[in-house]
Amino acid sequence: MSGSLLFIGHTGERSGAEKVMAALVDVALAQGRRVVVACPDGPLAESLPDECVHVRLPRLGMWGQTGLGRVAGLAGLPLRWLVGALRLRRVLAAERPAVVCNSLFALPSLRLAAAGTSHRERARWLVHDTLSSRKQRLVARLGRAAVAGAVAVSRATATPVRECGYAVVVAPNGVPIPAAPSLPAPRVDSALRVGILASVTEWKGHRVLLDAVAEVPGLRLDVAGTPFPGDEPFLDELRRRAERPGLRGRVSFLGQVDPASVFAVWDVLVSASTSPEAGPLGVLEAMAHGVPVIGTDHGGTAEYLSDGAGLLVPPGDVEALAEALRRLTADPCLRNDFAVTARRRVEERHNIEVTLPAMANALWATGVTL
């Protein structure tokens, strides 16, 4: 199969959205397509297959939580979008590719690059953000003229994108399904282990989780994941919080991990995001491995855990999360029921062997109606 494909990402980091894009790159290469990936330098670019062409972009999104880092990130955004557009325009002119924009914050650069050309009809936006703020909706509307339509990874994500004027189809995320659910390894102490597997950034809800665990004696918490550039002070804050009374000696910071290794020892996974996630891979991976999940009741997480596949709590509610932890950790039968239902949900709806080809077809196959 011939045809050139351009993937555009706003960051050089390798989080959930970038993992999905990397999997789609592999599909495109296997189809014999020429693949160009435009993204900033970083772990994502370093992990690209040798067959890919990498076009270096500036960082097209924000970074840093507060202070000068946040101000600098915002002030320089229009210029970085313009620089990104100039580099993308060269690729569009030389390659005439179909385009997959993997990021909300890359849309303005794509719009500037495609202005005055026919590339809009060959571009799709793969939506990994549930638009929940005015800033996100503004950026989405800025990018509307650049793409023919959007492919959302969950129904919750599709709704606000439609409201911004896009034609949208849903192609859910998927994960590999292990041969059998992991079983918790024997432990020396009797403390149940709760884990969070997420980038260490404020909206992932780590503060809420630490406060909730402090109210439930007898639990141990593992924090797996690393901060985005600019979020290092937030990790330091969490470490200080973990040394205060009520949590001292009960929290471990694991950094980057192999998900299968922690799923083998965790009794419960918590997804505590305070802003709605589109389709969190960590939740799906835990479900596939037979680890019961507590998640916040919005976005793709609410879809994944509905109808008995997990426990849902209001976002940002420390007391509700603490009560869910008490309920789930005290009842092994309930944990097993959730694990069985969740595993079946992933097998039926989120098997990557089915979802990934379907997503690729929605993004770049001819004849797909949006």
Rank of each mutant, 00 (worst) to 15 (best):
147 V>L: 04
145 A>V: 05
98 A>K: 15
134 R>C: 12
114 A>T: 11
118 S>D: 14
99 V>T: 08
142 L>E: 10
153 V>G: 02
159 T>K: 15
101 C>K: 09
134 R>P: 00
149 G>H: 12
133 S>L: 12
107 L>W: 01
152 A>K: 06
143 G>Q: 06
88 L>A: 11
156 A>R: 12
149 G>W: 04
95 E>I: 04
142 L>M: 02
140 A>V: 05
105 F>Q: 14
97 P>K: 03
145 A>D: 15
110 L>F: 03
161 V>Q: 05
87 R>E: 02
143 G>V: 05
153 V>A: 10
162 R>Q: 15
122 R>D: 05
162 R>N: 00
108 P>R: 03
136 Q>M: 12
144 R>A: 15
143 G>R: 06
109 S>H: 00
86 L>Y: 04
119 H>N: 09
166 Y>F: 12
104 L>F: 00
87 R>S: 03
154 S>V: 13
158 A>R: 10
86 L>C: 13
119 H>G: 00
111 R>M: 12
93 A>C: 08
157 T>A: 14
101 C>S: 04
119 H>V: 03
101 C>R: 05
164 C>A: 02
118 S>Q: 12
162 R>C: 10
104 L>C: 13
115 A>Y: 11
83 V>T: 15
164 C>P: 05
142 L>H: 01
160 P>Q: 09
146 A>D: 11
115 A>L: 07
119 H>M: 15
142 L>C: 15
110 L>S: 11
142 L>R: 13
91 V>Y: 11
95 E>H: 04
133 S>A: 12
118 S>R: 12
126 L>P: 07
126 L>D: 00
120 R>Y: 07
85 A>S: 13
106 A>W: 00
149 G>D: 09
161 V>M: 01
91 V>S: 13
81 W>V: 03
121 E>Q: 14
100 V>L: 01
158 A>V: 03
